[in-house]
């Protein structure tokens, strides 16, 4: 198992932080902006073909998540949210050959000596136009493909328990549990890539409701329901 898939329900934790800032350190907004740029310039978007960027990779939430889910799980909990992004994204640029580790280390050392040293300036405005356009248009997983949904509202379904993969869309606590279909969403939905555990091709998605006691028995609260939207590939008929 991958611990990152099983965060929901972990016991023995301290009270939760209610920090309302989005970025708790000023540097964090820089890595956020870089990730958005990569998504907006990803090679699977048709509009990107004519954009004069040197970025030529496929980059989505799925790729970012795959990196986070591939981390040593104990390290995963040592680093803050955007620290993980910085590690994953800089690693990606090095592994993909856009920059070398040496370039990044040298430049990092230079900024450590003077954090206010200016950035390189310039660039093609059409790059930024595409990134903002991506934010306005999005990248919907809804597909034109029709499919007959296997389940209907009111059906009891069992959540499958497929072997772990690099990137999974199924919260671990739901595996093998039974829930009831509350809504069948219209149409079909794909995912950015095939996850290898049954998701990626266009398929129906269901809103499935679980009684929290069916998942956690005596260690949850009364009168509590859990609603999760689940790809059909993760569901089967109860035996």
């Amino acid at each position: 198992m991958k611990l990152q898939h099983y965060i929901g329900g972990i016991e023995g934790l301290e009270p939760s932080s209610f920090e309302k800032k989005v970025f708790v350190q000023p540097w964090e907004e820089r890595i956020f902006g870089i990730h958005v740029a990569m998504m907006g310039l990803s090679n699977h978007l048709e509009a990107v073909e004519s954009v004069p960027t040197k970025f030529s990779s496929f980059w989505t939430w799925g790729h970012l998540r795959q990196g986070a889910e591939g981390m040593n799980p104990f390290d995963y909990f040592k680093y803050r949210y955007y620290e993980k992004w910085l590690g994953g994204i800089s690693g990606f640029f090095i592994e993909s050959g856009y920059v070398t580790e040496e370039e990044l280390s040298t430049k990092t050392a230079a900024y450590l000596a003077n954090l206010d040293a200016p950035l390189q300036s310039g660039g093609e405005p059409a790059i930024d136009e595409q990134i903002i356009e991506y934010l306005r248009v999005g990248d919907s997983p809804a597909c034109d493909v029709e499919a007959q949904s296997k389940f209907k509202v009111g059906d009891t379904v069992t959540v499958r328990n497929p072997p772990p993969v690099d990137h999974c869309k199924l919260p671990g606590y739901l595996r093998t549990k039974k829930g009831v279909v509350d809504e069948v969403y219209e149409g079909t939905y794909n995912y950015y890539f095939l996850t290898g555990d049954g998701v990626g091709d266009p398929m129906p998605i269901y809103n499935v409701v679980f009684d929290s006691h069916d998942i956690w028995e005596g260690i949850t609260e009364p009168n509590t329901k859990i609603y999760v939207q689940i790809f059909e590939g993760y569901l089967e008929d109860p035996e």
């Binding site: 890595i31 740029a37 450590l112 954090l115 950035l119 930024d128």
Partner: peptide, 18 residues
């Protein structure tokens, strides 16, 4: 902070972002 600034600067230099 230094590492992300280094990354941003390199990505600008390489023509990936502006």
């Amino acid at each position: 902070a230094a590492r992300v600034r280094a990354l941003e600067s390199l990505l600008i230099e390489k023509g990936i972002i502006t």
